[in-house]
Design a protein around this nucleic acid. Structure first.
Length: 334
DNA sequence: GGGCCCGCAGGG
DNA sequence: CCCTGCGGGCCC
């Protein structure tokens, strides 16, 4: 019987092989000058700001960094004219993705503990959910658009899935896969599976299909649980990704802070551009029942801005941008 | 850390 | 209407 880590390593090795077998030419290790760091453009738009009803930045007292910080990650592009005036207070201040409850999300939370109050988080007239930067009459619903969302640069960053959804980059609040008729529109890498491999320019991804967990009263109110059955390509989400392989439609990819990879942002969710799915297969997943999972191999389309790479050892440390690295001596520990 | 309630979006 | 899904927050 293999231990968890042995099994994981075996899976990872297999996933790496598959990625390698795709014979994709890796982008050269272009180490971009720090400037290239995309999107230092703060200027969060309203959409993004007004967004979460839950957490709203009350006033400026919270952290006042951001401004000059090169690591400002808010990257909305927005035509200035289109830009809606900022409700003050929310304007600047990078809001954090309370990745860990108990962090200085301070006043943010609190403001609205109206958890039970069902009300739109964004005023009706502002919540197109179609990509606010292009919200004009007649503009298409970008939630169902393949490829880039107008006005959203590669490298754009959001504190939460909710905000990302508001900009139509990845519609589901929870789901990792946004399915469409000719393939998935977008996916989210959030570190849900330990044996997924992320090399930046390519990665393997595990499909959907898990039980929900809950209590007696609310049997399925939790969004995750242990794998308790085999995943299949009949599942709509997996089917969509399989279809992506056939159609070659580009898929928007966002990486989240929970992703255990040097390509994951240290906070929030970042749009890393377009990828295509090259291959799909099934394998025994990393779960105690040995249940099968559906897997997919993604490869990044060329000609896009480089991905930000996190300085591992330091974590929160600095981030530099490169567009693909050979070395991936990502210290395996355990 | 874990437990649990509360969301939304999309598809059936 | 129902259900699901690599969230998020709060409480312990």
């Amino acid at each position: 019987m293999l231990s968890y880590s042995q099994e994981r390593d075996a899976n990872i090795a297999r996933n790496k092989e598959i990625l390698a077998s795709l014979a994709v030419e890796k982008l050269k290790p272009t180490t971009e000058p720090k400037e290239t760091r995309r999107s230092v453009q703060k200027k969060p738009k309203t959409s993004n700001v007004g967004t979460a009803g839950h957490k709203r930045k009350t006033d400026a007292d919270s952290d006042s960094d951001v401004d000059e910080k090169p690591r400002a990650k808010i990257a909305r592009v927005a035509n200035d004219e289109n830009a809606v005036p900022q409700p003050e207070g929310l304007a600047e201040g990078r809001r954090r993705s309370s990745r860990i409850a108990g962090k200085p999300v301070d006043a943010l939370a609190r403001v609205e503990q109206s958890r039970g109050t069902p009300q739109p988080m964004i005023p009706e007239d502002q919540r197109s959910g179609r990509g606010d930067t292009i919200r004009e009459q007649g503009s298409p619903d970008h939630r169902k658009t393949y490829g880039a969302i107008p006005g959203i640069e590669v490298g754009s960053w959001w504190v939460s899935r909710e905000e990302c959804s508001n900009d139509a980059v990845h519609a589901p609040w929870v789901g990792g896969i946004a399915p469409g008729p000719d393939g998935a529109y977008s996916i989210a890498l959030s570190g849900g599976y330990d044996d997924d491999v992320d090399d930046g320019y390519a990665f393997t991804y595990t499909g959907a299909g898990k039980d929900l967990k809950g209590t007696k009263a609310a049997p399925k109110n939790l969004r995750t649980a242990e794998q308790s059955f085999d995943q299949s390509f009949e599942h709509n989400h997996n089917k969509a990704l399989k279809r992506s392989v056939e159609t070659g439609k580009p898929i928007r990819v966002i990486r989240g802070f929970k992703l255990r990879s040097k390509y994951g942002p240290s906070e929030g969710y970042r749009y890393d551009g377009l990828y295509v799915v090259k291959k799909y297969w099934q394998e025994k997943g990393l779960n105690k029942g040995g249940f099968l999972v559906c897997k997919f191999a993604f490869v990044r389309l060329p000609g896009q801005p480089p991905i930000t790479v996190k300085d591992m050892d330091g974590d929160e440390a600095d981030e530099t941008t490169v567009s693909g690295t050979e070395s991936d001596a990502e210290g395996d520990e355990d």
